[in-house]
């Protein structure tokens, strides 16, 4: 693996303990230019992980706490009358940053949610008739509480589809938790964290991910998986073409993180569960625990 990336991973793993796989998925997601959704109960380190990612990668970082009374202007910014100059001056909102941590995104009203999601899709925002580009790279790391909690506006399927991966952190293992309890305060570590690579480095890595070789045999496998998801009566709907494209990109990113210049089936299998978790829903009448078995079902597809 690229030595700077290896160091970056190692640094993040020092802060978020025992979540090597999730950290790697986050990195792959960002390398594949995708937005990330972290879903879990409060207090397992979602925000810490997002913070550590931004710091380590040397990216500008802002956090937006979503609440039920958050307005689109609170995210995008607004033009305010300046008495001195007698003009309206635009005051950019927190969205004009390279990494946005949208905390508890499902607590905001759909109106505020869609303001963010539009920015995610277009890479630019339109305010007062003027289109303003967002910085590059631009990532959204959104966290949300499980949908069945009180006071949540669950994201509709169409908007969930805009997140490339969805991961869950889960509680730490016993040893990791002991290290956490023994160790320094996470906030102190974060404050002292030095970036491992600069923004130019990261853009270069993203370019390299695009160049990872994908053979016809691998595309056969990808298509077999997508077809299986579409024909399976247990899912309400199969994977969309956007999801298929995303699967390809994140597979390449995973292969890149593995230090290979071509992608192989194991790469697909490694990223697949996080890719389908928020896209495949059990059809009505099938057990609600669908998100647990959906990835497993796709892994039943034979590698051609």
């Amino acid at each position: 693996m690229n030595p700077t990336l290896a160091r970056a991973l190692e640094q993040i793993n020092r802060i978020v303990l025992g979540k090597d796989r999730q950290v790697r998925l986050c990195l792959a997601c960002l390398l594949a230019r995708g937005h990330l959704l972290i879903e879990d109960v409060p207090g397992v380190g979602k925000t810490t992980l997002a913070h550590a990612l931004a710091r380590t990668l040397g990216l500008e970082f802002r956090r937006i706490q979503f609440t039920s009374d958050l307005l689109p202007a609170d995210i995008l910014g607004a033009a305010i009358y300046d008495r001195d100059s007698g003009k309206f001056t635009f005051h950019p909102g927190p969205i004009f940053a390279q990494v946005i941590l949208a905390d508890e995104i499902n607590r905001a009203s759909p109106k505020a949610q869609s303001a963010l999601l539009e920015a995610m899709e277009e890479g630019q925002v339109s305010i007062e008739g003027e289109t303003r580009p967002l910085p590059c790279p631009f990532f959204v790391i959104a966290t949300q509480n499980p949908g069945d909690q009180i006071g949540a506006f669950p994201l509709p399927e169409s908007q969930l589809d805009r997140f490339l991966l969805r991961i869950r952190l889960g509680f730490p293992e016993r040893a990791a938790e002991r290290a956490l309890l023994r160790g320094e305060d996470r906030r102190d570590i974060l404050a002292n964290l030095a970036p491992v690579l600069g923004p130019e480095d990261f853009a270069g890595h993203q370019q390299a991910v695009r160049g990872i070789h994908v053979s016809d045999a691998l595309l056969d496998y990808l298509q077999a998986l997508i077809t299986a998801s579409r024909g399976d009566a247990r899912f309400a709907a199969g994977l969309s073409p956007r999801a298929g494209l995303g699967l390809l990109r994140v597979t390449q990113a995973w292969a890149f993180l593995e230090g290979r210049n071509f992608a192989q089936p194991e790469d697909v299998q490694a990223v697949l569960p996080a890719l389908v978790a928020h896209r495949l829903f059990p059809s009505a009448g099938v057990s609600r625990a669908g998100e647990d078995w959906a990835p497993r079902i796709l892994l039943e597809v034979a590698i051609p």
Partner: peptide
């Protein structure tokens, strides 16, 4: 296994 990758 049918879905077992070569490395695995």
């Amino acid at each position: 296994g049918g879905a077992e990758g070569p490395t695995d």
